[in-house]
Amino acid sequence: MDLVERALAGERLAIARLLTQVENNTSFGQEALQRLYPRTGNAHIVGLTGAPGTGKSSLANQLAKAIRSRQDAPKVAIVAVDPSSPFTGGALLGDRVRMRDLAGDSGVFVRSMASRGALGGVARATSAIVQVLDALGFGMILVETVGTGQSEVEVARLAHTVIVVDAPGLGDDVQAIKAGILEIADILVVNKADLPGVENTLRALNLMLEMFPQTREQNGWKPPLLRASAVNGEGIVEIIDAIFRHGEYLKTHSLWTTRERSRVLTEILERVQEILLEHWKHQVGETRLNQVVERVLQRELSPAEAVKYLLD
């Protein structure tokens, strides 16, 4: 049996090694992904995003634990992304520190990923990793993004359900009405509800939700605003109910496929773009490209003129 077959049979070391191959985009990894792709499409993919320190990892830990304790619980995978250093390429992946409750459950698989230069809150290979886990029978996949600012919304394209996690004391109500990350929320969670200031945060977010109804899609889903405390387990059941409710909602309103379709389209376009760009660079040649850059630096051409010139 090769690695893919062993992983499909549930061998955990094979799963881990397969994920490495896919993350590193080796030729074996690419081939494995092609073989596994027909088996994908069964997992409910849930994104967890929000500012650093809002408690995403602790929440992922609690959610996974609570989901696993249900009857007929699906296998749960967590993909936790942390940033890579832009200078050395190294990374410190610390999300497991908050996930100690999950050790010993063979129905849970936790994998840390470095962002490896990608800026959207997840790594370039995160989508591929999620596809592998989906194909291997993990029914729920939690994708925890790097601590995000206001515009890292990549996870919205990857996930069926996006949970945006906020916490008290992170900014005034103007932060809450800015465009971007809050607009991708299917579920809004104010974590650390045991801390002072939680009422203010809830009020600001509530106002935002009332002012911008359904920005993501005109589909009638009103993102619930939930309070939780991952340290003492408050609100976890309500979040899980909301996740399942949202999944049902997507299916009954045929939005599940709409989201998949837009994700597939984006993925294809991105790949085409990458390949075309490489192809084009090769065609133009480094020398000519550098000459044109030089002329732009000398103010002989504007960048727009340079592009036109190169494309002619």
Binding site: S84, S85, T88, G89, G90, A91, L92, L93, G94, R96, V97, R100, S112, A114
Partner: peptide, 15 residues
């Protein structure tokens, strides 16, 4: 963990 990160490695820290 920090030194290994600065040497370009991916370090998983478990606490």
């Amino acid at each position: 963990a920090q030194a290994l990160r600065d040497a370009g490695m991916e370090v998983i820290y478990t606490g």
